[in-house]
Every structure is written in structure tokens, then in C-alpha cells.
Amino acid sequence: MISFETALLDRSPTILGATAVVALLMAWRFGRAPERFLASLLLAIVASDLLLGMPDSGRAAYDRFRIGITVRDALVLVGVGAVALRANRLYPLVMAGAALVAALAHLMRWLELFQGHFSYLVLTTAPGIVIVAAFLTGLALHIRRERLSGPYPAWRETALPPAIADSHKLA
């Protein structure tokens, strides 16, 4: 039986990669702008794992603070956070929360607030699983909602620029 650490480090990148590709295809077919952007972001995360040599680094990647992974996770937080604040959706809020956990873990590691290798591993890897799970669940709920109620706005009206929001008013 494989250990939790092995499952998290060695198997999850492959599973997440395959899931990201499937998610991207479904988002482009059934989703709107927020879904497509988030699916592209998921694929970019997987691609960056390959670039940063994550599958090869394995456990060594979590023995010390790594700037590449930290910058990657910070960019993910910015991207997901922007969609969470502007999109007329709920699931990006969960994704942004998970991305915030990963970013905080990097910050705490950099400040040497905790030294545990396993803790750092869990706090920076598990949010990726939460992000993917939240995206897939949100995408399924979005498809269901559109089928039941018809199309609905992708972006919150209060988040739109005034020129576009004003065009909705009666003359």
C-alpha cells in the first residue's frame, strides 16, 4: 500500500494533469469566460510543474523554500482571486481560499515560522486538489444551472466598468 506522501507527491501530478486537460475541454465546450480562464490557469499550473521539474524533485522540493514554486502559487492566487471577485460564480471563492492557503504556507516557510517538511508538503500540495475539485464541481453546477434556467451573466454587474453598467439603464 503506498504511503500518503507518495500518493501526494508522485501520483497527484499525473492525476491532476489528466484532470486539468479534461477540465479545459469541458470548460471550452460548456463553460463561459470564467470557466475557460480558470481551466487555462489549471493547465498552466500543470505545465509549470513540468517546467520546474516537480515530478523529478519529489520530496526534495519541499525540504526548503523554493522561489519558483512560490512565484507560481502567488500568480495562481492573483488569477483565481481576480476571477473570484469579479465573476458571477461561487466556486471561485473556494478556489481562491485554497490558493491563499498555499501562498500563506510559502510565506510561513520563508519566514521560517515552521520547519516541518510534511506540514509544508500538505499545505502546498493539498490546496491544488481542493482547487481542482472545486473547479470541477463548480463547472458541473454551472452546466446544470444553465440547462435549468438558461444563460446568466458571467460577470457581476457591480464589477463591470461604469460605461457597460450604465448601458443597462433605461434612457
Partner: peptide
Amino acid sequence: IVAVAFGLL
């Protein structure tokens, strides 16, 4: 978002 993050943490 912050509440979700603290919940997960």
C-alpha cells in the same frame, strides 16, 4: 475567501 482559507487551514 479569507474564511474559506482559514477553514481549510
